[in-house]
Design a protein around this nucleic acid. Structure first.
Lengths: 224, 224
DNA sequence: CGCGTTCTGTGATTTTCGACACTGACTCCT
DNA sequence: AGGAGTCAGTGTCGAAAATCACAGAACGCG
């Protein structure tokens, strides 16, 4: 797929006409990162926007002791790094490649100029940030008000909804889930096993499917 | 203070010229809410932006069982409710008056039209949302990676920085702090007492001052 | 000034989770 | 096919914090 068409598939650029897309495309550079490499370091100044063209990355916070929390996992045609471009503050998290990854990179000045010339892009960006803010609030809600089963239930429902069906295709290890919900690997293992025994979910070879939506919804709402 | 001047004191409007401020001002309505009343309900459709002119409000998530988490406390010249205006989604949280409060209200269409006519406002809004997103991430970091003393230490430092000095003037009850950091009232009481005994902070008649910044910073970083 | 409501301090008890420490099972190479 | 590395299941243990249950302080208001 050529760059213009690829950019068009991204919400914040979708409103642009061909000429604009072309110009944006010309400003980008490509970069490759092998699995496990760190793309962005927390606290770095940061002056680029990244768009995932191939692979998957995780946005993580890392504590002094090395424990991590995953703020989000981004796949093809999702982007990251715009915060620092907007407010000139340092990076707020690390971004690490979960697989071999190919990114398009756009530098601050180029990006800003283009945005200023295109109010539609600014608006789409606002919508995108609003979406993230809502997600962040939901995450805070989960961490503060739900116990571990609740958080796992919510995560599974989220993924199922996103996939549009009952079965979650993505390869999620218990460790990854643990980091996403702020729990330990063992607790996740136990809880998943529990859900399975109770018949809420079905698991075969790392693929989870939701069997009893109702109960999970219950768990995801109240601390029981 | 007249409305134009008041609006000028707000970051997202500060870049506007007098004529624009005047026009914005004419579109606003005033509303009063007594202490404890609910200004915005989660899940409501929502089509207004609110600016605090007097008083204080809290943005809260409430669980099924009535337990609450405070996402933020907003004072004079801060605003809320823009998310729903941007993405047309329902309100993501409740907003409740902590004191008798006077608000300026701006309706969606008026707001949007004015924003579209003023790219500078759109940009300031982006900066504001970016700031909130960073705060939300920091909150997630705290909830997932820090123990209660750590979270309290961080909160106190935040407030002290905000106040610009060592003493925090705002009237914070232990209950409120507990809701802000996702902990129980009792644990907060005990921890505050502890900090006091250890000489990290000084407390007199509900006003807390930071005595030993260093130690608090330590606590706020690592799980000890 | 008194009285009720809202805060705070503290003990005892109970839950929830994380920390370890292993075991076994897959899977991906090369 | 053999071996390294990663992933998952499980038991025990202990620490952190939530909960429960009061008692005492402080504050704010009529």
């Amino acid at each position: 797929m050529d760059i213009s068409n690829f950019l068009r598939s991204i919400p914040i650029f979708s409103k642009l006409d061909d000429a604009e897309l072309q110009r944006f495309g010309e400003l980008t550079r490509e970069k490759n990162y092998p699995k496990g490499s760190v793309i962005v370091f927390e606290d770095d100044p940061g002056d680029s926007l990244f768009i995932v063209r191939e692979g998957r990355v995780k946005v993580v916070l890392i504590g002094e002791d090395g424990r991590e929390v995953i703020l989000g996992v981004l796949g093809v045609s999702e982007h990251f790094g715009e915060l620092s471009l907007i407010d000139d503050q340092p990076r707020s998290a690390h971004v690490i490649a979960m697989e071999d990854t190919n990114l398009l990179v756009l530098r601050r000045d180029d990006f800003r100029r283009r945005v200023e010339a295109n109010p539609a892009v600014a608006w789409s960006l606002l919508v995108e940030l609003a979406r993230r803010l809502r997600r962040a609030d939901a995450k805070i809600h989960g961490l503060a008000l739900l116990d571990v089963p609740g958080r796992i239930a919510r995560l599974l429902l989220d993924f199922a909804d996103e996939a549009g069906k009952e079965t979650i295709e993505k390869p999620l290890t218990h460790q990854t889930i643990a980091h996403m919900i702020g729990a330990s690997r063992e607790t996740v293992s136990r809880t998943i096993r529990d859900f399975q025994i109770q018949g809420f979910i079905r698991v075969e070879r790392r693929r989870i499917s939701v069997a009893n939506r109702q109960v999970l919804k219950q768990l995801a709402q109240a601390r029981v």
